[in-house]
């Protein structure tokens, strides 16, 4: 049993000479240390500025333990019918919001595509508008639409439609720009009109991509639709916020489970549909 054999000084020098890259790089080490130090300093600033006290953290954790304890068993209480209705409402909000957003975004996407509208200023302007729409969170849209159409699911539909218009406009324009010119040229060369070229050259390429993006956003909007109720725009979020405020933890747990199961089912169905539409290749969305 021989222990590990230590390299002698001569050997070490030889190794050092042969693999300089592995032993040098002090500059990179200092840079890495500086980055870590900056990050820690920033975290320290955040802890100080946000007034994070460890006493509060401790008492809060005790509370969390009590809350989690209260969550078992999850129970709908006497509100099962109300909750299921709210769940349906949530799905309706996600579905109609996505669809409306896609319909509004389609002409905007055409306008924002360089290959369709060669005018630089036109597509620049449309793109900046889409960026601005996208920069506003869906919850802010929900609050704004509550001011316009009042509390309820309709405000939620409009909020999701508005925020999706921004994302879809960008994605659709990219899908249209990425379309291959050759089928279009082919249709034109056999005597087709511009309309024919769009119908037979462009649409078959673009529609599957757009359809899969819409489905993908329907998935993600189902999640958004569960929370916009928290600010009063319809759906299951309203009940969730209410049950949390009245400390009915069993019902909170039931609602969270309901949301998780629904989201999982929607994910499954929509990814099946997406694969059916575009074939089992990886899709670049978002």
């Amino acid at each position: 049993m021989t222990g590990p054999r230590w390299t002698t000084g001569v050997e070490a020098a030889a190794i050092r000479a042969r693999y300089p890259a592995a032993f040098e790089g002090t500059r990179e080490r200092i840079a890495a240390a500086a980055i870590v130090a900056t990050m820690l300093a920033l975290a320290g600033l955040a802890v100080w500025r946000l007034d994070v006290s460890f006493a509060r953290l401790g008492t809060g954790l005790v509370q969390i333990a009590a809350i989690v304890g209260g969550m078992f068993p999850p129970t709908p209480g006497t509100h099962l019918a109300v909750f299921m209705h709210a769940l349906g409402e949530t799905l309706a909000i996600a579905f109609l919001g996505t669809l409306t957003g896609a319909l509004i975004a389609l002409p905007l996407g055409l306008l924002a595509a360089k290959t369709i509208v060669p005018n630089v200023f036109a597509h620049f302007a449309v793109r900046r508008v889409l960026d601005t729409i996208r920069g506003v969170d869906v919850l802010i849209w929900a609050l704004i639409f509550i001011n316009v159409v009042g509390l309820g699911p309709f405000a939620g539909i409009l909020a999701i439609a508005a925020s999706d218009t921004g994302s879809f406009g960008k994605l659709f324009s990219e899908a249209i720009e990425n379309a291959d010119r050759k089928p279009v040229d082919g249709v034109l060369s056999t005597g087709g009109s511009a309309l024919h070229a769009i119908r037979w050259g462009l649409v078959p390429q673009v529609v599957p991509v757009i359809a899969s993006q819409i489905l993908y956003y329907f998935e993600s909007n189902t999640r958004s639709a569960t929370i916009i109720g928290i600010v009063g725009a319809g759906g299951i979020g309203l009940h969730l916020a209410e049950q949390i405020r009245v400390l009915e933890w069993g019902q909170v747990a039931f609602l969270v489970l309901l949301i998780l199961v629904t989201v999982a089912i929607i994910d499954l169905v929509s990814s099946r549909l997406r694969f059916a539409i575009i074939g089992r290749s990886t899709v670049e969305v978002g």
């Binding site: 946000l50 007034d51 809060g60 954790l61 809350i67 999640r223 949390i244 405020r245 969270v256 949301i259």
Partner: peptide, 20 residues
């Protein structure tokens, strides 16, 4: 999968209002 706003609501009940 649980939306972050739901966690935020729960934590506001446990830790009190604020950035924490």
């Amino acid at each position: 999968t649980v939306p972050e706003l739901v966690f935020a609501l729960l934590f506001v009940m446990a830790f009190g209002l604020g950035a924490l």
